[in-house]
Amino acid sequence: MYKPTKIIIALVIFLAIVTFPIWSSIGSDSVSPDVEISLDTPAINALGDDASCIYDTDYMRANHMKVLSEWKVEVVRNGNRMIVTEDGREYLASLENTCFECHSNYEDFCLKCHEYSNVDPSCWECHLEPVTDSNVSEEV
């Protein structure tokens, strides 16, 4: 009945299967996702070559949700509505009134990546997608 070898082998196989998502992606960090997001909006184009986000692109790509989550607390609970970056730029910490000023293309920016990474942030249950021609006619 009691056979430690078999149990250990079975455990190893079990662990291997369970940890598949972790070890299967080792070494594939540098592979860029197969998704193209668009920065072609009137506001960004108007900025021309000087266009930059509040933080640099790589940081925002990986951490925008943390940035927004921190804004959420600072703005709503602490009343700190301004964010001053380390190099002295000032922004109003607001999804609607700052982020979407530039990134007014929800479908080609936010949604594309969220769909690619299969996430469904609950933000959109309350926060409105930026006004575009398509959603204006739909919502109003």
């Binding site: 951490n63 943390k66 940035v67 921190e70 301004m82 964010i83 001053v84 970056t85 910490a93």
Partner: peptide, 12 residues
């Protein structure tokens, strides 16, 4: 290694 804060929050 990836904390969000890279700035300070202020009141208007």
């Amino acid at each position: 290694a990836t904390t969000a804060t890279t700035g300070t929050y202020q009141k208007n």
